[in-house]
């Protein structure tokens, strides 16, 4: 479990995160949602320690991130897997070498064991075998995302972070990625944190949703709670499109 305790983060005098507190649970997809500029990315980067909060603390199963020494922080990061917005696969390594990379750096597995584990992870995210030895630039955006997921889970992380996992993907591929994130979260029991403003993803996989507006936590709840929320800002954001307005109307009618 990750606990965010009253964190504040400013850049050049401008407050980007303003006293945010939340709990992110294990075995669930925790989503950080909000409009562009609401502070989602800064919050995610603060959670993973790429930004140090000015105030407040982040606890990983009781371990304080802000009080950690560099060595302990690096050890903690070995328990994390991250899917970046642009996949962030290493250009100079093939698909399978990218997946093997964390094992080469951190595990004592021999070459054959690493090969087997990398193949298993790639097959788990439905990457066909003929792609294994291609370079990242030679595969599609959807495949790059899946390879990045395989790399993120290869060391069986306790915490999985996904920054805009569906950006630049078509709706069908987005759905596949969402399902994969959901399945892996349940399978591995990870505390998964997804940063997104994709409404389909939110309604599809969001177990615990944290809504930010202008750097302030406006609302937190499940995707079911969204329909009954009377938070205007959340309503404006989630039901901005006519399609979702209709979904909400139908949902509420159905419940009556």
């Amino acid at each position: 479990m990750i606990e965010i305790n009253d964190i504040v983060k400013s850049f050049d005098g401008s407050t980007v995160l303003n006293h945010i507190s939340a709990s992110l649970e294990d075995g669930k997809v925790n989503m950080i949602i909000g409009q562009s500029g609401s502070g989602k990315t800064v919050l995610l980067k603060s959670i993973i320690g790429l930004h140090i909060p000015d105030e407040g603390d982040i606890l990983y199963d009781g371990r304080s991130l802000t009080a950690m020494k560099e060595k302990d922080l690096r050890l903690l990061r070995r328990e994390m897997g991250m899917l970046f917005q642009g996949s962030a696969l290493f250009d100079s390594l093939s698909v399978i070498e990218n997946v093997k990379f964390p094992m080469q750096v951190f595990s004592d597995k021999d070459e054959e064991e690493m090969e087997q584990r990398a193949r298993y992870c790639l097959q788990r995210v439905n990457i066909p075998e003929h792609v294994f030895h291609l370079m990242p630039g030679e595969i599609s955006g959807g495949q790059q995302k899946r390879v990045a997921i395989a790399r993120a889970i290869v060391l069986e992380p306790k915490y999985l972070f996904c920054d805009e996992p569906n950006s630049g993907l078509d709706p069908r591929t987005s759905l596949v990625i969402d399902q994969l994130i959901k399945e892996l979260t349940e399978e591995l029991g990870t505390c998964t944190v997804v940063n997104s403003h994709d409404m389909n993803s939110i309604m599809e996989i969001g177990d615990n949703i944290l809504f930010l507006k202008n750097g302030v936590k406006e609302w937190q709840g499940s995707r079911q709670d969204i329909f009954h929320s009377d938070n205007e800002a959340l309503d404006d954001f989630v039901f901005a499109s006519n399609l979702y307005k209709e979904v909400k109307r139908t949902h509420l009618l159905h419940q009556q």
């Binding site: 993973i48 790429l50 690096r74 050890l75 903690l76 990061r77 070995r78 994390m80 991250m82 970046f84 917005q85 642009g86 962030a88 696969l89 290493f90 250009d91 990379f101 964390p102 750096v105 951190f106 972070f161």
Partner: peptide, 18 residues
């Protein structure tokens, strides 16, 4: 520089690599 802007350096950091 390209590794920096394509988040490959962040990916290394997140993996706990210096």
């Amino acid at each position: 520089g390209t590794m920096r802007i394509t988040e490959q350096i962040d990916a290394l950091e997140i993996m706990g690599v210096n």
